[in-house]
Amino acid sequence: MKEMMRYGFILALICVVAAGLLAAVNSLTHPKIIAQTQAEEQAALKEVMPLASKFAEVKSDKDKDALYYKAFNNQDKLVGFVFKASSKGYSSQIQTLAGVFLDQKISAVKVISQNETPGLGAKITEDKFSEQFKNRSSLDLSGVEAITGATISSHAVISSVEKKARQIRELIKNER
């Protein structure tokens, strides 16, 4: 009985020390981590909309994720929009970031998260595929050719971008 108390005490002590350490490290790193994720997000947004220098989130609801981003150039003029499209591919959820100009033409797209088959579906991240989107209307991407052997992954990207572009079409119109 006495031994059990001793073991319990030692284990509790280790847990308390561990919890204390974690709390301390967390409070030190938390603001830095948030800043890092924001910087990363800004960099990704800039990649699909190189013309812009500033981005503003637009949300449909306060708690929801951003619906799309308004992109401003350095004279604070609206130059386009960036939105995130997501859809199920062959073996994973594919997330794509797309930048569109005011006339709905695509500036660039970038697949930001995927876990498709390496060597096949994973080719959607390559420039050869994403370059095809440039200067096409985001509302009609039927001209983009799917990658050989990766039709499902390619179509997931194409249709998710198209779908999201149609979804926010009316909202974007009011912004101008």
């Binding site: 284990l11 280790i14 561990a18 790193t29 981590i33 890092q36």
Partner: peptide, 29 residues
């Protein structure tokens, strides 16, 4: 310092703490 009979839970707590601290530091710095 660790008694033999409860070494496994102690090790797991120590390893998990170390991994979490590493992860947080990597993310931040």
């Amino acid at each position: 310092f660790i008694p033999g009979k409860i070494r496994i839970p102690c090790f797991i707590v120590i390893i998990a703490t170390f991994v979490t601290i590493t992860e947080l530091c990597l993310k931040a710095y």
